[in-house]
């Protein structure tokens, strides 16, 4: 098994008619993902057509889920409306909402987190590349791709990857694939200070997944999510974990591209996170070039 999604997972796209959402809908369809519906208010009844695919568009998520059987959604809605779109997915009873949108105000996400307490839905992101569970075809075709990650760099296998950064996820995945090592599922949890799913949540899923035999965890400066995951791994970890922390050279008090990547008040430094990794027995890659090799040496 993989975690969160399988190649059979039916996916809908919120914001399917936007430029960004449309482009990645086409790439997911090309990858062989079961992308079964789209949502754009006011465009219900139309179709999103691409290379022989005819994806029905609905006005609401509830309707799209009911008619198509989709259980997961990718949110490509612009920042001012994204929090609302996430909550619509929650109300529709989706199992998984993956918010790709970058630039959602923190206050909106604070309210979303509060509103989701007790709900059945898992939120990934926002400001994330999404999830890929690779398929068995050529260049991992036939997998489930929700979001914006390049599908072809993956390979079906047994390593779980979790990261706050998109390009560092691709870097790790590519290092694995070019060494002939495949992945169970790759999860980008996003670079914002408030997100739906933490490193720890994903690590727990990987530890419980019989298909996953090793994990790469990529973190960066800001917050304490990496430390919390490391603490849990020290006590309950049953599989080898290797990691990398980005931002050792970042100046304090500056936001490094991601809204959440900031050292403030002496908290959230790379040094503290690396120390937490080491004391939890997590293999720390000295450079981002060595993420896969660090894990492979442990296995």
């Amino acid at each position: 098994m993989s975690i969160l999604v399988t190649p059979q997972t039916k996916v809908l796209v919120q914001g399917i008619t936007g430029e960004f959402g449309g482009r990645h809908t086409r790439l997911s369809l090309d990858y062989g993902t079961q992308l079964v519906a789209g949502v754009t208010p006011g465009k219900g009844g139309q179709f999103f057509e691409h290379a022989g695919h005819k994806v029905p568009i609905f006005d609401t998520v509830a309707e799209a889920a009911k008619q198509s059987g989709a259980t997961a959604s990718a949110v490509f809605v612009p920042p001012p409306f994204a929090a609302d779109a996430i909550l619509e997915g929650v109300d529709a009873g989706l199992e998984l909402v993956v918010a790709i949108t970058e630039g959602i105000p923190v206050r909106d996400m604070v309210r979303v987190k509060q509103a989701m307490i007790g709900s059945q839905t898992r939120l990934i992101g926002p400001n994330c590349p999404g999830i890929v569970t690779p398929g068995t075809g050529k260049d991992s075709h036939g997998g489930c791709r929700i979001g914006i990650a390049p599908g072809y760099i993956h390979k079906k296998g047994n390593i779980g990857v979790v990261s706050r950064s998109g390009t560092l996820t691709y870097e790790a995945v590519w290092q694995l694939t070019s060494r002939g090592i495949g992945q169970s599922t790759c999860v980008g949890i996003g670079g914002d200070p408030v997100n739906g799913t933490s490193h720890l949540d994903v690590i727990q899923l990987f530890m419980a997944d019989s298909e996953t035999t090793g994990i790469i965890m990529i973190g960066e400066i800001g917050g304490s999510a990496e430390e919390e995951a490391a603490e849990w791994i020290a006590k309950h970890g049953t599989k080898p974990v290797a990691g990398f922390i980005a931002g050792a050279t970042a100046p304090p008090g500056r936001r490094m591209g991601h809204a959440g990547a900031i050292v403030s008040g002496g908290k959230g430094t790379a040094a503290a996170k690396i120390e937490a990794f080491k004391s939890a027995g997590i293999g720390v890659a000295a450079t981002p070039s060595e993420m896969a090799d660090t894990l492979l040496r442990m296995m």
């Binding site: 390009t167 670079g191 980005a246 970042a250 490094m256 450079t287 981002p288 070039s289």
Partner: peptide
């Protein structure tokens, strides 16, 4: 990418 940009500074 922001993560890779930080990692590039680090390397």
């Amino acid at each position: 990418g922001a993560g890779l940009a930080m990692a590039t500074m680090d390397i």
